[in-house]
Simulated scan of single mutants.
Amino acid sequence: MTDAELAAQIAAAAGRILIEVRENGLFEGKALGSAGDEVSNRFLLHALHAQRPDDGVLSEESRDTLLRREKSRVWIIDPVDGTREYGEKRDDWAVHVGLSIDGEAKVGAVALPGLNGGVVLRSDRVAPLPEPAATPRLVVSRTRPAKEALAVAEAIGGELIAMGSAGAKAMAVVRGQAEIYLHSGGQYQWDNCAPVAVAKAHGLHCSRIDGSPLLYNQPDTELPDLLICRTQWTERVLEEVRRIG
């Protein structure tokens, strides 16, 4: 199977496993989140090792040895993006399976298992973007919205939509539920590699909030800020971020 098919298949399977773990009633709250992280991570690692044994892997839930730096192809995974939301039995969490090739997010699948029937957004299956809203919608963290996002929303007359995980927010833009996702204040490569691959495939702008490119398989796993948006808003948002600056 292709890399994109593999990413989608294992992201969807991990999502089904996570729903089963959540619904069996053995765990609650933080214990549920921990169990989900561990089970999903083990499955994804085993699947990638079986199907792509020569590639590197970077996972939120595994120790990083930097051996990945010797590889041009590195899978970057988040077994449960939004562990808090998963543990609270919300639907705004995700599973990320992304492939970085020479530092660029090339292939990705983002599963949203909590949605009815489960949804998987993929870099190899691109649907036309829905018509944008007349008033731009900015999706932000439900617990700690970025100050830049708040300021940009005020400057452009935007509407704020609070949501959980990074993957859920990024896919809200892909799915036409928002026009802009601007984050600052801390993320890691696994938080956005797969979402960026999917968003780029759908024709969205993806960059750091200063407009610089998003680089993956870097020694430092931190990638603290992110902008995913409709292209018609790119320059205005970047300009406002610079002005806030």
Rank of each mutant, 00 (worst) to 15 (best):
I244D: 01
K30I: 14
P136V: 12
Q218I: 07
Q218S: 11
V95W: 02
D64N: 15
V74H: 08
A170W: 05
L48M: 10
G15I: 05
P113W: 07
A149S: 14
P53C: 11
D37K: 12
A4R: 05
R69M: 13
C206T: 11
R16M: 03
E222Y: 09
Q187P: 00
L226K: 07
K147S: 11
D78V: 10
A105Y: 00
A13E: 12
R208V: 01
N217T: 11
G211F: 00
R52Y: 00
R69P: 00
P136R: 11
H205S: 12
Q51L: 10
L121H: 14
I180P: 01
H205V: 11
L215W: 03
W93L: 09
A151E: 08
V97N: 06
P128Y: 11
L223G: 05
R68Q: 07
R22H: 00
A172R: 04
Y188M: 13
V173W: 02
F27L: 11
K147T: 10
L238T: 10
A14H: 04
S207E: 00
G36N: 06
L238F: 06
R63K: 12
F43A: 09
R144S: 12
K147V: 13
D81C: 13
V139N: 04
V21R: 08
V196E: 03
T135N: 06
G98E: 01
G29E: 07
V21E: 06
A172K: 04
V74W: 03
S100E: 02
K147F: 05
S212L: 07
V140I: 14
I209H: 04
L67K: 14
W233M: 13
R73E: 02
M1E: 03
K30V: 14
F27P: 04
V241E: 00
H205F: 12
D225K: 10
R122Y: 01
Q189W: 02
C193P: 03
D191Y: 07
V237W: 04
A166F: 12
